[in-house]
């Protein structure tokens, strides 16, 4: 109960936990906070970070996209193919973003036109995208010789803060404004909080949901392109755990899996905690396969806290 309150009460508490975890790992391994490692943490954070922006919006609106990671991976492959076919990298980036939007539109079609549960529709699409990527790449990495494209993933400010991280930060700030200061943002909260009531008040929940999925597809494409640029390579295995990580980060940050609650700042701290934790496990020499178990455990823990919170709110309502 205490931990639940601490996690729920404010982002400050979560930030405090993050700092404590960081210091703990630093005590175990003094190299944990050197420039190279910090840059690595920020770099790997930015991929899941961009994904979690779209995921946070979806979750607040009462939706979810389990295919986000696969969409990012597919987008990486698409951008690589385009560039290797001679398309200028800027244009290739733009076309890939359109491709991401299309992926989102497909999800939205299944969910809003055909009435599938978002879980099922996006789980199915995840498999489809992963399969297509395997077919297209023959399970091999696609190298990108075009050095101009590498820029997005390799520049960093003062040699510590990578451009990818700045992109993530800018997106988070922009979407934070969208969520709390625009009609659209408010509509997302209302749909996630009570879809029926929102509809009877004149909001079109299907339209909101469609926008959220398209938006998520665009963000997944950006995440995929940035990752590909950093690696100079499109890998069919990249980002396979992207959706899970993004959900973990968002829910850790207080975004409710049941919709209607949470915010971008919580999501940011969730991402920070998740990555500090992951990198820390590596730094202290925790076996890499076990790290997957630890990450899954973290998601389950975050969901437990979310559901316990929701249940105690519901019980409070029934007692009334």
């Amino acid at each position: 109960m205490f931990i639940k309150k601490l996690l729920r009460s404010s982002n400050a508490a979560l930030l405090f936990i993050t700092i404590a975890v960081t210091l703990l790992f630093y005590i175990f391994n003094n190299n944990y906070l050197n420039f190279d490692n910090v840059r690595n943490i920020l770099n790997s954070m930015s991929f899941v970070g961009v994904l979690s922006v779209g995921m946070t919006l979806l979750l607040i609106g009462g939706e979810v996209d389990l295919a986000a990671g696969a969409e990012a991976c597919f987008s990486g492959v698409v951008v690589a193919l385009l560039i290797n076919a001679g398309v200028p990298w800027g244009l290739a980036f733009f076309l890939t973003v359109l491709f991401g939007a299309l992926c989102g539109l497909i999800n939205a079609f299944f969910i809003n036109k055909l009435g599938f549960m978002s879980f099922i529709a996006t789980l199915g699409m995840m498999s489809v995208y992963q399969g297509l990527v395997t077919v297209i790449t023959q399970s091999k990495n696609i190298q990108i010789p075009e050095q101009g494209f590498w820029v997005i993933g390799s520049i960093s400010l003062w040699n510590v803060v990578p451009l990818a991280f700045i992109i993530m930060l800018v997106l988070m700030i922009a979407y934070s404004v969208v969520l709390s200061n625009t009609n659209f943002g408010r509509s997302v909260y209302m749909c996630g909080g009570n879809r029926h009531a929102a509809r009877l008040c004149g909001i079109n929940p299907k339209k909101i949901s469609t926008i959220l999925y398209v938006n998520n597809g665009v963000l997944a494409a950006i995440a995929g392109v940035v990752l590909t640029s950093r690696m100079h390579t499109a890998s069919p295995a990249a980002g396979s755990s992207g959706a899970i990580d993004a959900i973990t980060a968002a829910v850790l940050g207080g975004v409710s899996f049941l919709g209607g609650a949470g915010g971008m700042s919580g999501c940011f701290i969730g991402i920070l905690l998740l990555n500090v934790f992951n990198a820390g496990l590596t730094a202290v020499g925790f076996p890499s396969y076990w790290q997957i178990v630890a990450r899954g455990g973290l998601l389950v823990l975050a969901l437990c806290l979310d559901f316990i919170g929701a249940r105690s709110r519901r019980l409070a309502l029934e007692r009334e």
Partner: peptide
Amino acid sequence: EQGLVLYHSIRD
């Protein structure tokens, strides 16, 4: 169930 978004404020 249908009238209010329960966990949001009067303002919202």
